[in-house]
């Protein structure tokens, strides 16, 4: 994790909706291969920032670079090199696992051969090879989340954005999910993750905490706990929120 190359660079990012300022002058970098936790209460502006980083929304102002591409001019290049998994489960319930993989591989322009290879590899990792012809709606939620994550990294993106990936999932599956995140980060894919679970924040390499559209803290979990003389990330978060 000692690479110093930045994969995301954000300078003075501002996003306004009319008079409402959703992102108020954000500044941060994400290093290649790290797990970057992006925390904040509901409505703090996390989703807005992620949408801008994914090239879905235009920022009002600021210099933003994702995977080496400019968010104003090169959104299409950005889209090719990122993966995305949202808090809503986002695969098709009426397609089989295999067909979902085929479809998502297809829209990222993978060849049939690549899709077959990747599908096999990812399903092997999950131990779901047997079920590949089952319809998605016959699969338990925990597994679906893992499948959605697999789909998001199928095209080997440089960065994967996970927007509250573990919402509504049991603790054991959450633990397994984080194992997958570690594996992914070790393979060189940068992980940008938002979460509500403060214990998960401890697993991140670095964490930023947003309050009312601003980044109030950004560092490793250890450093943050020390700075705020807190026992856990939960305390850090509460102290910041009450400030």
């Amino acid at each position: 994790m000692k690479q110093t190359k930045n994969i995301i660079e954000v300078k003075n990012l501002v996003k306004k909706f009319g008079r409402f300022v959703a992102n108020d002058n954000l500044n941060f970098e994400v290093k290649k291969g790290e797990i970057f936790g992006f925390l904040g209460a509901n409505g703090a502006g996390k989703t807005t920032a992620i949408k801008i980083l994914c090239g879905l929304w235009r920022p009002t102002s600021g210099e933003i670079n994702v995977a080496g591409y400019d968010v104003y001019k090169q959104t299409n290049e950005i889209k090719k090199h990122i993966g995305y998994m949202s808090q809503k489960f986002s695969m098709y319930e009426d397609l089989t696992i295999k067909e979902n993989f085929r479809f998502y591989g297809g829209i990222y322009g993978l060849s049939s051969l690549q899709i077959k290879k990747k599908t096999k590899e990812l399903l092997q990792r999950l131990g779901l090879e047997e079920s590949q012809n089952k319809l998605l709606n016959a699969i338990p939620l925990g597994w679906k989340q893992k499948l959605a994550f697999s789909v998001a990294i199928m095209h080997e993106p440089k960065i994967v954005f996970l927007d509250e990936p573990t919402g509504g999932v049991d603790p054991i599956t959450r633990r397994q999910f984080w194992d997958m995140i570690y594996e992914t980060a070790n393979s060189g894919i940068t992980v940008f993750v938002t979460t509500h679970y403060m214990d998960e924040a401890e697993y991140c390499d670095r964490v930023s905490i947003m309050v009312d559209g601003k980044i109030e803290a950004l560092d490793t979990p250890e450093k943050l706990k020390k700075d705020f003389s807190a026992e856990s990330m939960n305390d850090v978060f509460l102290k910041l929120a009450r400030k």
Partner: peptide, 13 residues
């Protein structure tokens, strides 16, 4: 409604 539209919009499609 299912959230798949978001994923599609994030994709290069």
């Amino acid at each position: 409604e299912l959230g798949t539209m978001e994923v599609l919009l994030v994709s290069p499609l």
